[in-house]
Design a binder for these strands. Sequence first.
DNA 1: TGTAAAAGTCAAAATTCAGTCAAGATATTA
DNA 2: TAATATCTTGACTGAATTTTGACTTTTACA
Lengths: 224, 224
Amino acid sequence: MQYKILIVDDEPMLTELLADYLGDMGYLPFMATDSVQAMEKLKESPDLILLDINMPGMDGLELCKTIRDEVTCPILFLTARDAEQDKINGLLIGGDDYITKPFSLPEVAARISAHLRREARTHDSSRLLASQELLVNLSRRTVHFKGTEIEFSKREFDILELLLTHAGQVFDRERIYESVWGLDASGDSGVVKEHIRKIRQKLQSVAGEDYIETVWGVGYRWKQ
Amino acid sequence: MQYKILIVDDEPMLTELLADYLGDMGYLPFMATDSVQAMEKLKESPDLILLDINMPGMDGLELCKTIRDEVTCPILFLTARDAEQDKINGLLIGGDDYITKPFSLPEVAARISAHLRREARTHDSSRLLASQELLVNLSRRTVHFKGTEIEFSKREFDILELLLTHAGQVFDRERIYESVWGLDASGDSGVVKEHIRKIRQKLQSVAGEDYIETVWGVGYRWKQ
DNA sequence: TGTAAAAGTCAAAATTCAGTCAAGATATTA
DNA sequence: TAATATCTTGACTGAATTTTGACTTTTACA
């Protein structure tokens, strides 16, 4: 099996170098140049994340905090030798680790392989979705926005999953009903309407946005 | 084979120094800054543990007592010269040893290599899991919380193992039944419900926490 | 601008589900 | 074999969720 490694760093030179090297080592590297892009790339479910701490915008530590509860794979920080030491120590949880710059490529490779070996036991292909700053873990049935969890009931989560996994596509209420309940939707029952309301309410209160668009006369769709 | 060495100390400077040195010597050092983190890191099944006695929170001696039954590798204590002498003498078991601060790096290396040479270790400790302060040995089928054992029956342990080895993932009762019993779950499996109750009861009474989360309408998951 | 259809809101009722318990069945040990 | 531990079952309860229907608001279009 080939391990997927997400490299998050704003220096293209360094990223390129790492990617090339890891590619040669038999890994499947892919990259993001900032935190927002990184969140998007989580969809590809990396087996390990190489994360630079110093980045413009949301930095590596913040990103880590944001995704920590949703992502089970190890996160390896890249950091300048002296700086940030305290912050990092406070943050290191579970399988996390850090590498100080400048580093040698074999060193990085060694650390990566060590973490992956250990992770092999507990690793589950946790199906992870990201939509802007929202992270949804389909295996754990959890939703996080910037590190805080939003709880959904069974039906609510099922509907959310349906819409999110087909982001942009419009579903009418019958379709949603049939899909989630597994029954024929005999006439309008209004149940779906109510659940959509609850979902929006919860999203709105935590994220300040509801991500669900009403297509008048037709149905609902997840904003892309 | 490269030996893995767990360094447990709350002084980053010292830890770094040791780690660098041991790394150069061909070991694979990894670190924890407190006892709780150290317990987590046991998952990596170190071949030797370097353990500072003076640490905030749970100190080195307590940690040792807690993990002694689950860990077979030697533990090397780091301690100030005069202090704690009596306590240590009372504690030294099996292959354990201690080094007084300040120490020279070659001295530490010498002790480590001596202990490792002596240890023709059996590698069955690799099936060791830690979740917060709970230690679970899958080979021995034992569960310890802060040194005290919690006994589980066969079915109970099987369920616990399933949930724990897939921490965070949600399992519905049918899934659990099929996985543990190896049979098709025909209809309601209230058995699982009852076993979950027993597991929780035992965990709760010893650890004061049950580690198992109910996902309403769906199933159960191990708290991460 | 008025109106009918569609969508949104709300709270109460209905239902489903998880937790509990006790007792019977089965397996294990002395 | 008896004694003991473990597993299984089914009934019961209270809690959480789901559903309903009456009501309000918004929208599209005449």
